[in-house]
Design a protein around this nucleic acid. Structure first.
Lengths: 203, 203
DNA sequence: CACTGCTCATGACAAACGTCATGTGATGAG
DNA sequence: CTCATCACATGACGTTTGTCATGAGCAGTG
């Protein structure tokens, strides 16, 4: 029997500790390191070289996906998986693009999670069926790169003038992109467009 | 030694299960029921009459605070406490107003949580020191009831006409309230105002 | 009772915004 | 090479906001 060396990264102590305890019950899994932030997770991974890194999506410092991206470059032998409370389709896509091997919501049980860790360690992938269905039905973002960029800058309610300056575009161009984005998303105005794009994980 | 009968409510199976396991390690705590949604938590509480109800703030169906409110009315002997990932000052205030005895972030350890459960059972209160500091420094919402109501309706980017209709107000009045709210919050426009109010838990 | 603060309204003006027509370059597919 | 698409721009138009002045009714407080 091979034992799987696991890194746990989650900023919620309650979950991390509890998870460590539950995974310890599995004979073939051993938690070799824990981290509460993105940078800490990277440092721990370098120091302990785990087989599988279980990363929370939302962490201070750097989110799970960017940690996964760094790990992929630095420790190719380390498989990564993302655990999250908010299962947005866009996040799933970003994660898979970053080479993450599994994407699971926190609604699974610890036993299931243990199974998924084994699956990942064996070189396979796992995606929560429900999230996968959402992601497929949600489809790809219809927005062009610039439209997305401008929409992001509009996300905190900034006026057009400010967006134009930050994007180094003319105000007219910004309005055009915003208008295009809103109509593509079927929104009445840019603010509603921002909301929709967020919901679908496109921003 | 008295044993404390605990109800656990959290929609994230991973956390709930793990938590149950860790609390089971404490001799004087026994988890008598678990729930994944607000309504389920209420039903379980009625059936099992726990001493302390540990409620997640964000749950499908009904959030932790409204569950606490119902419990207070139905089972006055049952002490309630809220556990949450997002520690917004406004939530803390709402919770305390609803008679919740403790408000803790998920960044505490299971051992600490066990201690807090005992504290609550003994009839005392507990509020995370950092959250308390935030809540005090954040202060009360400067918005009047109507301003808050209108701002909430504006939250999804709806145009003034729609807000006016839904609030049964004239468009001019809506603009006045929105303008007042934005200036009280120091925001450039209503959308930024919505963001700020959300951050501080005032919507 | 006077005063203050909240609610609700109207009207008016300037600024910001949404939309459309139109045009130029660049890039990539056929 | 041609055609479509994207990036970027301008100017113009009408609409939607933000802001301000002003006022009326109604509650609670001193």
């Amino acid at each position: 029997m091979t034992t799987v060396r696991v890194l746990l990264a989650d900023d919620e102590h309650l979950i991390r500790g509890a998870l460590a305890a539950l995974l310890a019950l599995e004979d073939d899994l051993v938690v070799v390191a824990e981290a509460a932030t993105g940078p800490e997770a990277l440092a721990m991974a370098r120091a302990h070289r785990p087989d599988v890194a279980v990363l929370d999506l939302e962490m201070p410092g750097a989110d799970g996906v960017s940690v996964a991206t760094s790990l992929r470059a630095e420790l190719p032998g380390c498989r990564t998986m993302i655990v999250t409370s908010h299962g947005l389709p866009g996040h799933l896509k970003r994660a898979l693009a970053a080479g993450v091997r599994a994407f699971v919501p926190k609604t699974v049980s610890a036993r299931q999670l243990a199974g998924i860790i084994r699956t990942v360690h064996a070189g396979n992938r796992y995606v929560d069926p429900e999230l996968a269905a959402d992601a497929i039905s949600a489809g790809d973002s219809p927005l062009t790169a610039r439209e997305t960029e401008v929409l992001e800058l509009a996300a905190d309610g900034a006026p057009v003038a400010e967006i134009a300056e930050r994007a180094s575009l003319s105000q007219g161009t910004v309005r055009n992109y915003l208008s295009a984005a809103a109509s593509k998303l079927g929104a009445e105005n840019r603010h509603a467009a921002v909301r929709l794009a967020r919901q679908r994980g496109w921003v």
